[in-house]
Design a protein around this nucleic acid. Sequence first.
DNA 1: TTGACAAATGCAACTTAGTTGCATTATAAT
DNA 2: ATTATAATGCAACTAAGTTGCATTTGTCAA
Lengths: 136, 136
Amino acid sequence: MTNNLKPAHKLPGCRTSAARSAILQSLAVNHCQTAEQLMAGFSKNKRPHKTTIYREITCLLDNGLIHELNFGDGRKTYELADNQHHHHLICLKCGWIHPIFMQHDLDKTVAHSAKKQGFTVTKHSLEFFGYCLKCN
Amino acid sequence: MTNNLKPAHKLPGCRTSAARSAILQSLAVNHCQTAEQLMAGFSKNKRPHKTTIYREITCLLDNGLIHELNFGDGRKTYELADNQHHHHLICLKCGWIHPIFMQHDLDKTVAHSAKKQGFTVTKHSLEFFGYCLKCN
DNA sequence: TTGACAAATGCAACTTAGTTGCATTATAAT
DNA sequence: ATTATAATGCAACTAAGTTGCATTTGTCAA
């Protein structure tokens, strides 16, 4: 588990970083996490400073290893970039987040009509909100 | 223009409010605006305090007159609730926002499969990011 | 193996968006 | 006209995230 993540930790122009490795491992276990949740994932005695967390997140974003998401609650959420394109179910009560895989060509469809007004679509965000099993 | 908005300004348990009327009028002209943009819409000499803006936004949300959106830049955006269901084109460079109307039954499709795991979909968010005519 | 440069880290102070408590003003129902 | 309560302003606060700077540490080249 640790081993197959190691290569990804080696980034060009970067050294190995305990915090960076830990963040990637944490995201491999828990699909979607905020900066705060990533912080909480460390045991208290070896928890890095919040500045470090935010800087490693920036580094991982710059290197395309993670994606930033925003579910409307004002916090940024992160997930590994190495998984296939998907969307999310998000519980409005408990914050439970679940990836869903569905086939669609929204991007293509919209790109076509958007182009008529000179707009080029590069990505989209599609999230479903509601109530999970426990909160229903 | 002012007249046909007036009735909407009368909210149960609320008095008429200059700030509230102005916010609704501003959103009628400019589809999507942040709290800061709404502030900027007032001429300097009769601009209400930011606390007032935020409180009026809360009031309008509570009464269902506006919707809150979040395009991932950390700011909340507001639009009138009295228009038909739509999504947005959002320019990543200049922040240009444009509503798009497209037919789809994503909500229904997903609601069906989500229900199998006990999740009830109540709403969804679908936004397209890219570059507008000017920024292309 | 060592030396040195740059990356990683920690800390304090700062920024930005938004919130809360409290005092004052003003609308509208009686 | 009186009065209750909504609307407003102001100051102080919170929460998420950022920046500057000093210190530590990993890694490359000699």
